[in-house]
Amino acid sequence: MTEPIEPPDNADKPHYQGHRKRLRTRFLNDLGASMQDYELLELLLCQTIPRKDVKPLAKDLIARFGGIGGVLSADPDTLMAQSGLNENSVTGLKAVQQAALRLIRRDLDRADLLSSWQAVIDYCRAQMGRESVEQTRLLFLDGRNRLIADEVQHRGTVNHTPLYPREVVKRALELNASALIMVHNHPSGDPTPSRADIDMTVAVRDALARIDIQLHDHIVISRSGHTSLRAEGHI
Rank of each mutant, 00 (worst) to 15 (best):
R24H: 13
L141P: 03
T157H: 10
L108R: 02
A231R: 14
N88Y: 04
E167M: 02
T161C: 14
L141D: 00
Q17A: 13
P8A: 14
I49H: 10
L79Y: 05
A63E: 15
A207I: 07
P14L: 09
A95S: 10
I68G: 01
G67M: 01
H15R: 10
G143R: 11
P193K: 11
N145D: 11
T2Q: 08
A179W: 04
Y16D: 02
P50T: 10
A33C: 12
L85A: 07
E151F: 03
R110H: 12
S34Y: 10
T48G: 01
L72W: 01
L147G: 00
T201D: 06
N88R: 10
T157M: 03
H186A: 01
M80A: 10
D53T: 04
G233C: 02
Q153F: 15
M35S: 12
P50I: 11
V96L: 12
T201I: 09
L61Y: 02
V90R: 00
H19D: 12
F140Q: 07
R210I: 07
L45K: 11
A231C: 03
L163W: 07
N86T: 05
S224R: 06
L45D: 07
A95K: 08
G32D: 03
A11T: 01
N145T: 01
G225H: 09
R102V: 02
I62K: 05
L175I: 08
G129A: 07
